[in-house]
């Protein structure tokens, strides 16, 4: 009965639209229009002395297409994003699993400790990494030299390695959260069921747990990838002025070089690439797991 009876006053679609209209208007005015203006901006011309010319040309797009500087920069952006995604998956999945098996007070405490950084300013967190990496007397290098892993300090600041480590830290809570959510849906008896059927602990992990947290792992991967590819503050602070990624390059074009059309083209390209990647991988995951997790 309940399923066939509609939601209360469902025929009055007008009242639904009345409630949503203010938000819709806001978004059309302040999200859609600016985005369209940005896309248009990417086709405008710019010169050192003439500024922005409102013409329609492909100059900026051609520049990105032909200049290997941009190829390198985009390759670096996505390389960093892929590495960060894999690192957060490799570390986040076991941690979420361990967390889930903890006892009552510790579970909550460590969940807070691991997810909490999500709400702490990314500038403050990245500053922490800058301090840990910093120069010869960075804490990380001192510690590594003390335990004898390395003889000379490794360069972290202004390197991709440093950016990847710091970004992995920044993105880790998203991954743990996503896998944690998948683990919560697991029947706690399912492990015991497998064990009672004679499976070893390792087999249980590989055959029972892992396939079930896969959707969480993948959706976490999509979130982390798209956020890492468009990250700004962390690459800007750790990567410095030399190690550019898409977001920091766009920032430079806008606020230092003042070549807005080129910056807009970089930003639009980043957005389009991310939308294509996210939407297609979402579709893939949904198709793959639809049957199991409807």
């Amino acid at each position: 009965m309940q399923s066939s009876s509609p939601l209360f006053l469902s025929t009055q679609t007008r009242s639904a639209w009345g409630l949503i209209l203010p938000s819709l208007a806001l978004f059309l005015a302040v999200v859609i229009i600016p985005l369209i203006m940005t896309v248009m901006l990417s086709f405008h011309d710019w010169g050192q002395y003439k500024g922005i010319e409102t013409v329609f040309i492909l100059k900026n797009w051609y520049e990105i297409w032909s200049d290997s500087y941009f190829h390198e920069m985009f390759a670096r952006t996505f390389r960093i994003a892929v590495l960060v995604t894999f690192i957060t998956m490799a570390l986040g999945a076991p941690e979420a699993y361990i967390l889930n098996r903890m006892r009552a007070p510790w579970k909550g405490v460590f969940l807070l400790v691991i997810l909490g950084p999500l709400l702490i300013s990314v500038v403050a967190r990245t500053l922490g990494w800058a301090l840990l990496f910093g120069g010869k007397n960075g804490v990380v290098n001192m510690a590594l030299m003390k335990i004898g892993v390395i003889d000379a300090p490794l360069p972290f600041m202004f390197t991709e390695t440093g950016v990847v480590i710091a970004l992995s830290h920044v993105m880790m809570p998203f991954m743990v959260l996503s896998i944690w959510a998948a683990l919560q849906k697991l029947d706690p008896q399912i492990e015991n069921a497998a064990l009672s059927l004679g499976a070893s602990q390792l087999t249980v992990m590989r055959r029972i747990i892992f396939p079930q947290i896969m959707p969480g792992l993948l959706s976490g991967g999509i979130i982390v990838f798209s956020l890492a590819a468009s990250a700004f503050a962390t690459p800007a602070i750790i990567g410095g002025r030399r190690l550019k990624v898409a977001a920091t390059l766009a920032y430079d074009e806008f606020l230092n070089t003042l070549n807005w059309p080129l910056g807009a083209a970089v930003a639009v390209l980043l957005l389009v690439a991310l939308v294509i990647i996210v939407v297609s991988s979402n579709a893939l995951i949904e198709r793959r797991y639809k049957a199991v997790f409807e």
Binding site: M1, S4, S5
Partner: peptide, 13 residues
């Protein structure tokens, strides 16, 4: 039956 009741109550036209 529930739809009938909801119509009497006025929640469903």
């Amino acid at each position: 039956k529930t739809t009938t009741l909801q119509m009497i109550a006025g929640f469903v036209p």
